[in-house]
């Protein structure tokens, strides 16, 4: 049973202006930091997994403050699934591409046939491409797990205990 965004907003006990303003201000900076962690993973602690989790946390924070349907307007369910798949496909796709171009599986220096730069530099850039795929996948899976768990699979506000009424029917 889906409910509309307006209904969901009415169902939240009270709007807290401090909470909503703080989250609205913070979410873009958290996302910028997540992107920094992914992109700067070659030179500082970080990488795809860590940055992906930070990006996912930004959307989860949004969902906590504004309600789950609002976060689904921000990032739709279709985009979520699509980008999770795309993340996994980027990684495996690059791995297979390396094999198709005549190198070993996951040997990024084979990508030199696409863009002729130093093969060792290609290994660095290959790691970066793979990290982007990891970041996308991890971000979307984290958000998806939160959505499912917080709303018991309904993907609505999740404030009701749908499971309790079902339990009564079973027992």
């Amino acid at each position: 049973m889906r409910i509309s965004v307006q209904e969901a907003r009415d169902r939240i006990p009270h709007h807290d202006i401090i909470l909503e303003t703080t989250v609205r201000l913070m979410v873009p900076f958290i996302q910028l930091y997540g992107l920094y962690v992914i992109v700067h993973g070659h030179y500082s602690p970080g990488g795809g997994f860590q940055g992906g989790v930070i990006l996912g946390a930004s959307v989860i924070l949004f969902a906590l403050a504004f309600g789950l349907p609002a976060s689904q307007e921000y990032l739709s369910e279709g985009t979520n699934i699509l980008m999770a798949n795309a993340g996994a496909l980027i990684f495996t796709g690059i791995a297979v591409l390396c094999a198709l171009l005549g190198g070993m599986f996951l040997d990024y220096s084979a990508l030199v046939k696409i863009l002729p730069i130093d093969p060792i530099s290609w290994r660095s850039h290959g790691i970066f491409l793979v990290e982007v795929g990891v970041g996308m996948g991890v971000m979307m899976i984290m958000i998806s797990i939160y959505w499912d768990m917080a709303s018991a699979g309904h993907l609505d506000e999740g404030l009701h205990m749908a499971s309790a009424s079902q339990t009564d029917k079973v027992l």
């Binding site: 499971s163 079902q166 339990t167 079973v170 027992l171």
Partner: peptide, 13 residues
């Protein structure tokens, strides 16, 4: 594991 637990709770309470 948490998802499975939620499912168990949904069935057995």
């Amino acid at each position: 594991a948490l998802a499975v637990m939620q499912r168990i709770y949904r069935k057995y309470g």
